[in-house]
């Protein structure tokens, strides 16, 4: 519950935030969370960081606590992407997928760690997550492997353009 909520005040859910999240693929699954905590016991990020708890993140999503979830130092980046929570959740909330959808919202606001934006940039310019250099092709040649062919980026770039006339990025 929001810390500033008075005992007598009704809880106010930020539905605008929840609608934005629901536009992302599998972003609306947190609605099915009944806060059982099955995701917590097997979460390595929870084991190694007191600040990370997938059950709490799902609760914040249910309230729509945008400021706590989408700040510049967002706890979401502590997720190890191990998929244990997806495996354990009896409601198929797929907490890791909700977290990735939240990261999509962070990206829409231009907030992500440097390492993440660097790899995304490499993919968006070359079609691969590793930039191909002549040194890489020389290494490949040692094993009798041909140079890596360029990716048809004309096609990939067209696919990355956002849809027009839809509510995708609202």
């Amino acid at each position: 519950m929001p810390e500033d909520a008075d005992r007598d005040e009704p809880v106010r859910v930020n539905f605008r935030f929840r609608r934005e999240l629901a536009q992302k693929i599998e972003g609306n699954l947190a609605s099915f969370c009944y806060q059982c905590g099955a995701c917590v016991g097997d979460c390595p990020a929870t084991t190694y960081s007191s600040g990370f708890n997938p059950r709490e993140i799902m609760l914040k999503v249910l309230y729509g606590l945008e400021d706590e979830l989408l700040g510049s130092e967002s706890v979401l980046w502590q997720c190890t992407n191990c998929y244990n929570c997806h495996e354990r959740c009896p409601q198929e909330v797929k907490p890791v997928e909700v977290i990735i959808s939240l990261k999509n919202m962070l990206a829409a606001r231009g907030i992500y760690p440097e390492v993440v934006s660097k790899i995304i940039g490499t993919f968006e310019t070359t079609g691969r997550t590793v930039r191909i250099t002549s040194a890489i092709d020389r290494q490949r040649a040692k094993f009798g492997l041909p140079p890596l062919p360029p990716v048809p980026m004309d096609e990939v770039r067209i696919l990355l353009e956002p849809d027009t006339g839809t509510d995708e990025e609202e």
Binding site: I100, S101, K103, N104, A107, F123, D163
Partner: peptide, 13 residues
Amino acid sequence: PDPIYFKSKDKLS
């Protein structure tokens, strides 16, 4: 594309 970095930018793309 990779399931960690590019997916965290835009799942639909």
